Computed example of a mutant assay.
Amino acid sequence: MAVFDDDPPVRSIIELPGCSPVEGTVRWDPAMSIWNGAMLGIALVGTPLTFSWSAFAVFTVLTGATLLAGHSVGMHRRLIHRSFDCPQWLEFALVYAGVLVGLAGPIGMIRTHDLRDWAQRQPDCHPYLAHRESMLKDAWWQLHCRLTLDQPPGFDAGSAGESLAYRWLERTWRWQQLPLALVLLAIGGWAWVIWGICLRVSICVTGHWFVGHLAHRRGPQSWLVRDAGVQAHDVPWAAIPTMGEAWHNNHHAFPGSARIGIHPGQSDWGYAFILLLARLGLAWNIRTPVGMVARRRKLQPVLP
Rank of each mutant, 00 (worst) to 15 (best):
M1K: 14
V3F: 09
F4V: 05
D5H: 11
D6F: 03
V10F: 04
R11Y: 08
I14L: 15
C19E: 13
S20N: 14
V22N: 13
G24D: 04
D29T: 01
W35P: 08
N36L: 05
G41N: 06
G41A: 15
G41C: 10
A43M: 12
V45Q: 07
G46F: 08
T47Y: 05
P48Y: 01
F56D: 02
T63M: 12
G64K: 01
G64V: 05
H71Q: 12
S72P: 04
R77F: 08
R77E: 09
L79V: 07
L79K: 09
H81A: 13
S83C: 08
C86G: 07
C86M: 13
A93G: 10
L94G: 00
L94K: 02
V95M: 02
V95P: 01
A97D: 01
G102D: 05
L103S: 12
A104Q: 11
G105I: 05
P106T: 02
I107Q: 00
I110Y: 03
I110T: 03
H113I: 00
D114L: 02
R116M: 10
D117P: 01
P123G: 13
C125A: 14
H126S: 06
P127T: 05
H131Y: 15
D138W: 07
D138I: 06
W140S: 02
C145N: 02
R146S: 07
L147M: 07
L149M: 13
D150M: 08
D150N: 13
Q151R: 15
P153K: 11
D156C: 03
E162W: 02
R167T: 06
L169W: 14
L169R: 07
W173H: 10
L178A: 12
L178R: 00
L180F: 01
V183D: 08
L185I: 03
L185Q: 04
G188N: 10
G189M: 06
W192F: 09
W192H: 10
I197P: 11
L199H: 05
S202T: 10
C204G: 00
T206P: 00
T206V: 10
G207F: 11
W209P: 04
G212L: 04
H213E: 04
H216C: 11
R218A: 09
P220V: 03
L224Y: 08
A228L: 10
G229L: 11
Q231G: 03
D234E: 06
V235C: 00
V235F: 04
W237A: 11
M243E: 05
E245T: 04
A246V: 11
W247H: 12
N250M: 09
H252Y: 06
P255C: 08
G261R: 12
H263W: 11
P264C: 08
Q266H: 11
Q266T: 06
S267C: 08
D268E: 14
W269T: 12
G270V: 07
A272T: 12
A272Y: 09
I274S: 04
A278E: 12
A278L: 02
R279P: 01
R279A: 07
L280A: 14
G281Q: 13
W284M: 08
I286W: 10
R287P: 09
R287M: 11
T288N: 14
T288A: 14
M292Y: 10
M292A: 15
R295I: 01
K298S: 09
P301F: 06
P301W: 04
